[in-house]
Amino acid sequence: MQKEISKKKIVVKDLNLFYGEFHALKAINMDIYEGEVTALIGPSGCGKSTFLKTLNRMNDLVEHVRVTGSITLDGNEILSDVDVVALRKRVGMVFQKPNPFPMSIYDNVAYGPRIHGIKKKSQLDEIVEKSLRAAALWDEVSDRLSKSALGISGGQQQRLCIARTLATEPEVLLMDEPTSALDPISTSKIEELCETLKKNYTIVIVTHNMQQAGRISDRTAFFLLGELVEYDLTERIFHRPRNEKTERYITGRFG
């Protein structure tokens, strides 16, 4: 139960999001704790990915989006007057489909540090190696760093994307169904990776895979039709859900 006394990293208060007229997120209140893996589950279209993308303001890219309420990161409001670029450096994101840039493996990882002003080769080398090691990819690609990132397997590409995100030294790692496009072996590698990474990072992961949420997360949030139905320790959500809808969803999926 020591988890419950961890520090609150992100605090979401009364968050509403509209796509034009469509009310996509309804009065969400949620605390995300430092050093934990928080899983967001729910049927497609329930708002979990949308919610994830508000945490680093990627929704800014969508036209006609309106957000109200408050999200704080370490006590600082991120929804209003904030440097989104700096925010995204602190809150990194890994996407559903691996999206390495069409450049070499090395340049992919070095991309973030470079745009944030690091130019020295030795320093970049160090960051690249460290990030690739942290993403458990170093041993597989260290001999072909200058080869195109498009030439490695899907699972390796996804870990490369994680390494790329780690290279900007984020504090929070957002993952949007990171394993949905991968085979089981690559999936288990990414899951193991989450386990190690949470020592240094706060991880929020959207998944449609119930077992995955159960395996890797400390807390689970269940979304339905834009509402946060239930949010609790994963163990409780899976064994003693308080809400009937949560139970139906979970058992339905397991059944």
Partner: peptide
């Protein structure tokens, strides 16, 4: 590929950096 754009922005690149380093080269 729009995922390049997303990927770069999510790393904290500005729109201009994304444009010149990822989109234009592609």
């Amino acid at each position: 590929n729009p995922s390049y754009r997303e990927g770069s922005l999510a790393l904290g690149a500005t729109r201009l950096q994304t444009l010149f380093k990822v989109i234009l080269p592609s």
